[in-house]
Design a protein around this nucleic acid. Structure first.
Length: 497
RNA sequence: CGGGAUGUGGCGCAGUUGGUAGCGCACUUGGUUUGGGACCAAGGGGUCGCGCGUUCGAGUCGCGUCAUCCCGACCA
């Protein structure tokens, strides 16, 4: 059983990672379960982190030539059935709108669905927007001159999952979905690969989260895709988390929605497609990558509050004096683009504030008391290592600026070191079965068949996370860890969220 | 949807053999405190997930139902 959770200790992760995670999300004021089944309320502090992610991703998309658009929440049922694999993938988890009106019930105690208001065709609340978007693209695309179309949409989607977990798998979630249309196969493949690398760059640079870029095996592919590119991250319990995907959809959707263009020779051709997305699941990844038993640890690049200042005082005069000095220092830091919060709440003691801001993951804490004011110093504490030092007020803004960068880098290095320590090459099936229990990624040879993949999954719950593209590429001859048949490369196996 | 567990003030929990609810935290007020989660005093707030039943009497027993969590299956 997990230890009782309170604000003093988030939990012991080794005992019960799930509970640790859920409690951390709630205690750190990020989100909570809503009254609606499987849905979550993202609280202001949590949303501020999502906004930072949103803003940087949006900037990156635009930098790579994309534009934003918006498509309807409701998708006519018939659209979903156009692409066979796509329906099969999503049919089991759709919320369906059947009526458009309520009426007061006969006993007058409540409302009931008005049976006279049944929709002629049911509407599906989008689980993803390929279908409605390709139905629209049909009207936008006539000639090769209309291509490429590089649209992105920020939206919410609904997938009626059996089991939910805050940020990682909620019935409704926020995401962005890019949907592009191209004249050639090569261009579409290039786009899909480009975007998975945008995600990888984002994860590393902003989230301080190392990821493996790779291709999904046939079984793990997106419903309707020819290839699914993925970024896979390793959480602190050794399990893998798919943090973002980019799909090369071939001409499947173009054919399903009859989207053809006249090429330069005047001949009709089907359009090539990609789609790619990341969701609020990234928040889950962020939490599980860096947090410790004192709570959340946020990389400075995504922290809504980068620096919190806590005054220590006995009298009102002292408080006024200290806060006065703090405001001067804050102004210097704000000028450098650092977000600073002065916690001058007078009903809480300093120790409580320290613990609370640590729980919320604020990267840097600055404490000023009467002694510091005398000596012209401050106490500077960093969240990642929990180290404290006394530093001069002179040049504080520059020092903090450097510290924030150092913390960002240290978080990445720490996570990368953890990942390195938990990636192992495994060559025999016996070894595989014992090693997979220890968690982490296993680099193994695989014979390339879905049958073997399936059997490995049944016996060990491990799946092929990806065939690595950039790092951990192991193009070498060997024998499948399960079937012993020949293999030309290693792939990554792991248990996953 | 299968297996297991749990539903009691905002949160976390206790509640013996049935006798119409209690603790810690939080909250309010006053005071003393403030360099790592303060203390004292006085207060406010719940009919025990919901429904039906057994009983003189149900948080406690029975049946049903809903919800949540965990393990599976499914998934970003």
């Amino acid at each position: 059983m997990a230890k009782e959770i309170d604000n003093k200790e988030v939990s012991n992760r080794e005992e019960d990672y799930s509970k640790w995670y859920n409690n951390l999300v709630v205690k750190a004021d990020l989100a909570e379960q809503s009254a609606v089944r499987g849905c979550m309320v993202i609280k202001p502090y949590g949303y501020a982190i999502w906004e930072k992610m949103h803003d940087e991703l949006d900037r990156m998309f635009k930098e790579t030539g994309h534009v934003n658009a918006y498509f309807p929440l409701f998708i006519p049922k018939s659209f979903l059935s156009r692409e066979a694999e796509h329906v099969e993938g999503f049919a089991k988890e759709c919320a369906v709108v059947t009526h458009h009106r309520l009426k007061v019930s006969d006993d007058g105690k409540g409302v009931v669905v008005d049976p006279d208001a049944r929709l002629e065709e049911e509407l599906i609340v989008r689980p993803t927007s390929e279908t409605i978007i390709w139905n629209t693209y049909k009207n936008w695309i006539k000639s090769w001159r209309d291509l490429p179309i590089l649209c992105n949409q920020w939206a919410n989607v609904v997938r009626w999952e059996m089991r939910t977990r805050l940020f990682l798998r909620t019935a409704e979630f926020l995401w962005q979905e890019g949907h592009t249309a191209h004249a050639t196969r090569e261009e579409a493949v290039e786009e899909a690969q480009k975007m998975v690398h945008v995600y990888a760059d984002f994860a590393r640079r902003m989230m301080a989260m190392p990821v493996v870029v790779g291709v999904k095996s046939e079984t793990e592919r997106f419903a309707g895709a020819l290839d699914t590119y993925t970024i896979e991250a390793m959480m602190q319990d050794g399990k893998a988390l798919q943090a973002g995907t980019s799909h090369f959809l071939g001409q499947n959707f173009a054919k399903a929605f009859d989207v053809q263009f006249a090429n330069k020779e005047g001949k009709l051709e089907y359009v090539w497609a990609t789609s790619w997305g990341v969701s609020t699941r990234l928040m889950g990844a962020l939490i599980m990558t860096h947090s410790d038993n004192n709570g959340l640890v946020l990389p400075p690049a995504l922290a809504p509050v980068q620096v919190v200042m806590v005054p220590i005082y006995k009298t009102e005069e002292e408080l006024a004096q200290i806060v006065g000095r703090m405001n001067e220092l804050k102004a210097q830091m704000t000028a450098k683009g650092i977000s600073v919060k002065i916690d001058d709440r007078d009903n809480l003691r300093p120790g409580f504030k320290f613990a609370e801001w640590e729980l919320k993951g604020v990267p840097v804490r600055i404490v000023i008391g009467p002694r510091d004011l005398q000596n012209g110093v401050v106490e500077l504490a960093r969240r990642d290592t929990m180290e404290k030092e006394s530093v001069p007020q002179e040049g504080l803004a520059e020092r903090v600026e450097g510290l924030l960068k150092a913390i960002q880098q240290n978080l990445y290095d720490k996570a990368a070191a953890f990942r390195e320590a938990n990636i192992r090459r495994v060559d025999t099936w016996d070894e595989f079965k014992t090693e997979i229990e220890k968690g982490g990624f296993l680099l193994c040879h695989w014979d390339g068949t879905p049958e073997t993949e399936e059997k490995i999954k049944d016996e060990t719950k491990a799946t092929i996370r990806c065939i690595p593209l950039d790092s951990f590429v192991c193009e070498e001859e060997g024998k499948c860890v399960y079937s012993c048949r020949p293999s030309h490369r290693r792939v990554i196996f792991a248990r996953a969220y």
